[in-house]
Structures are given as C-alpha cells and as structure tokens.
C-alpha cells in the first residue's frame, strides 16, 4: 500500500506551552478512510494543519506524496482541508455560492463541476445566495460540497458537519461513501460523533494529549474490544494476561472492558462458565481509553497492545 502521508517524530509546541503534539509517527495509506478521534485539545486539528502545511512543525517532519507540503503549490492542489468552522467562508462576503464553487474549480485540478451542482441540489444549498447571508448549517454544507466535489487525492474533513441536521449528516456520509467507491481517494475524517461515523471508517487513529494512543484497522478493533461480565473470580481467571481497560464492580459480579483478542475457544470456555461476552462499540472503547478515570493505567495498557 502506498503511503500518502508520513509523519516522523512530529512535535509542535505553541508559544512555550505544553506540547500540542509530541513525537508523533503516523503513516496514512492510499485510498483508505481514516477516522481521527480524540478529545478536545488532543491535537487533532494541529496534526491536520501540520499535514496540510498550514503550521510549521517545531521538530520532526511531514511528507506528503513524498514531498514537504509547505510552500509546495503543486501539492496543495491535491489536498483539500475542510475545517471544523466553515465560518471562514463568510469572508467571501458578497460573492455568491456559485462564484465560490467556481473559485474552487480554479484551485483543484480534479474538480467535478456537475457533481458540485448535483450536491448543491442534494444539500438544498441555494447557489445564488451570497456567502455572508448563509446560515451555519448552509456554510457547513458549502464547505462539504467543496470537500466532496474537489475529489482531491487527500481530502480532510475536520468536524465538517457542524450545524448540519441529522438528515443532512446522513446524506453527507452516504454521498461520501458512494463517491469514494466510484473515485477512491484518501480521506481523513476527524469527528466527535463516533457512533454516527463508525461505518465510514476503515482505519482508526486515536490521539490523546498529543500522542497516538491507538492506530488500528477498524475490523481489528471490532475483533478486540469486548465487554465481559460475570462472577469476579471466574472473569479474572479467564482474562489473566489480557489487556483490561476498565473494571466495574457490582457486588459479586464484575463488568470489564477489555481490548484484546479472544479466540472462539476462549469465548466458548467463558460462556460455559456463565460469563457473558459482548462486543464493545467504538465510542465506548474511545471513552474508556481517553476518559480521566484511571487514565494513566489505561494509556499504559493501550500502549502495551
């Protein structure tokens, strides 16, 4: 698999404050959809801005398609960064939406004009409206249309759904997936709505306090995250040596969140001992990995995985 983005020991410090990113090593492979998850302030947007050359790394380096992204115009037409706050589109002021779309056509070589028009109808965006009069949701819709229609080999959506209602969000996900199957490209999807977007993600990167906590295929994660409940001594005996993220005690009973593979044999043996096993949704895994309660221990566990 071709690597599109390579980050090596990437560190970013803002004004002598704490490190926003700390020695991050990350490879993004071609034609996959990445889910970038992390709490507020975990460094998601900083990482994305470093990748797109909007910020300069303090130390370490980024390469995009094998080259340095900063000040490389040919490269910048191949990436599209849809930011979390589409408010910046209001700077176009009196320009109509269709003018903005025309401008995007000038920027992105792979722009698809008819697809953009089709999307505008789809998202109920009036292309004759002036950008300064657009509502929050419509601004997001305009930004998303640019992100989809540009078909850039690397497209980044950083919480692009802000202000969109549930129907439009679903429409966005569906259109994205459909267009992705027809025109494969690399997509990085940063989101807080994990459950909503988990169907899109092919690979998941979880950031916490400027470090990568987890970088794994979605399928592998699904095969590894479980809730296990049953009698304490039995559960402990079966899960010896497994990576336990969280334990909840209820009298004689415990419920454990684990992040480790369980073979069918192990699962059957546990079921026969009256232990219940259930897959843990990605959102729960994310919360147990990054939440404050016993965070230090969790991080170590996850790092050991």
């Amino acid at each position: 698999m071709n690597k599109i983005v390579e980050c090596r020991m990437l560190t970013k410090v803002f004004d002598n404050q704490a490190k926003a990113l700390d020695q991050v090593n990350l490879d993004i492979e071609e034609n996959r959809i990445y889910g970038l998850l992390g709490r507020n302030g975990a460094g998601k947007t900083t990482l994305l801005k470093l990748i797109t050359g909007q910020l300069f790394p303090t130390t370490g380096n980024v390469s995009l398609f094998g080259k340095r992204p900063h000040e490389n115009e040919a490269l910048l037409g191949n990436i599209c960064f849809v930011k979390e706050n589409a408010f910046y589109l209001k700077s176009f002021r009196d320009l109509k939406v269709k003018d903005v779309l025309k401008m995007a056509e000038a920027v992105y070589p792979s722009w698809d004009c008819s697809f953009a028009e089709q999307l505008a109808v789809c998202f109920r965006l009036d292309v004759n409206k002036k950008t300064k009069s657009l509502s929050k949701g419509m601004l997001s819709a305009a930004a998303i249309i640019i992100g989809l229609a540009c078909r850039a080999p690397l497209t980044i959506f950083d919480e692009a759904y802000l202000g969109l209602d549930a129907v439009l969000r679903q429409q966005f996900y569906n259109t994205l997936l459909q267009d992705y199957t027809e025109n494969p490209r690399t997509i990085i999807f940063s989101t807080h709505l994990i459950e909503e977007c988990k169907g899109l993600m092919d690979r998941v990167v979880i950031l916490e306090e400027g470090e990568i906590l987890l970088h794994e295929d979605m399928d592998k994660i699904n095969e590894k995250s479980f809730y296990v409940a049953g009698r304490r001594e039995l559960v402990e005996q079966h899960l010896k040596g497994k990576c336990i993220l969280h334990t909840e005690e209820m009298g004689r009973l415990v419920r454990m969140a684990i992040f480790d593979s369980l073979s069918d044999i192990e699962q059957n043996a546990m079921r026969l001992d009256g232990i219940e096993i259930q897959p843990m949704p990605l959102q729960k895994l994310f919360i147990t990995l990054t939440a404050g309660n016993g965070g230090g221990e969790n991080e170590q566990n996850a790092a050991a995985v």
Partner: peptide, 16 residues
C-alpha cells in the same frame, strides 16, 4: 492580511 487564512486554506502558498 485578513484574507490570509482563507487563501492558505484554499490551496495557495505563502509565497504566491
């Protein structure tokens, strides 16, 4: 200068 953010986010380099 107020337009800088917009341009840089729109595939433009600092030089251009």
């Amino acid at each position: 200068f107020n337009m800088f953010n917009l341009f840089l986010g729109f595939g433009m380099t600092r030089k251009r």
